[in-house]
């Protein structure tokens, strides 16, 4: 067990993006609190959540930014993409329009994050099978074509929610391990915390990513 004061060795910054009402905040809440928020108000701004997870024996602190989905806030929420190590791109499987807008969200994500940002596509509301408007297959194809990780999940039942957040972290961690994500690069979205001061860590720490849009 790590004896450090931080209790975790990495911080990953995540953003959650996608149309209004696809369940971004509910996914975050389900992930951090293991509860479904039935009457979740629209996010007017950017919510913030955190949880410590474990990947390959390493404790990782996730800092998750849940953005407002309303179109009128789009210009503002773009400020928050910077420095994200993971982006959860969410649509609602019962509303095709939210799926149709994916390419626009995706291009924002591609343009505003660094090339190594792991983008995970989540088809939310998988519990509403009867109202399904987007098939798994076509979304899967979209994901494959754009090289996205993909899963269908339900913030209501909790199905696959954990997986989406954890798989994203695993992929980021893998990128760190194989060297494709350079921690020293600006805006990598990852902070490395030393286990113990002065032990098995070089003195010069990678620049901590600046939080949020304190531009």
């Amino acid at each position: 067990m790590s004896a450090g004061p931080y209790n975790y060795s990495y911080i990953f910054k995540y953003i959650i993006i996608g149309d209004m009402g696809v369940g971004k905040s509910c996914l975050l809440h389900q992930f951090t609190e293991k509860k479904f928020m039935a009457d979740c108000p629209h996010t007017i701004g950017v919510e913030f959540g955190t949880r410590i997870i474990e990947v390959a024996g390493q404790k990782i602190k996730l800092q998750i930014w849940d953005t407002a989905g309303q179109e009128r806030f789009r210009a503002v929420t773009r400020s928050y993409y910077r420095g994200a190590a993971g982006a959860l791109l969410v649509y609602d499987i019962t509303r095709r329009s939210t799926y149709n807008h994916l390419s626009s969200w995706l291009s924002d994500a591609r343009n505003l994050t660094n090339p190594n940002t792991v983008i995970f596509l989540i088809g939310n509301k998988s519990d509403l099978e009867a109202q399904r408007d987007v098939t798994y297959e076509e979304a899967k194809q979209f994901a494959d074509e754009n090289e996205l990780l993909f899963i269908e999940a339900s913030a209501k039942t909790g199905d696959n929610v954990e997986d989406a957040f954890l798989e994203t972290a695993k992929k980021i961690y893998q990128n760190i391990q194989d060297g494709s994500l350079d921690l020293n690069a600006a805006e990598s979205g990852v902070q490395h915390k030393p286990l113990q001061p002065g032990r098995n860590q070089p003195q010069n720490q990678p620049n901590p990513t600046k939080e949020g849009c304190a531009c």
């Binding site: 007017i44 701004g45 950017v46 919510e47 913030f48 407002a68 009128r72 806030f73 503002v76 939080e211 949020g212 849009c213």
Partner: peptide, 8 residues
């Protein structure tokens, strides 16, 4: 250290 709120 926390969230942001948008005021229109």
């Amino acid at each position: 250290g926390g969230k942001d709120i948008f005021i229109t």
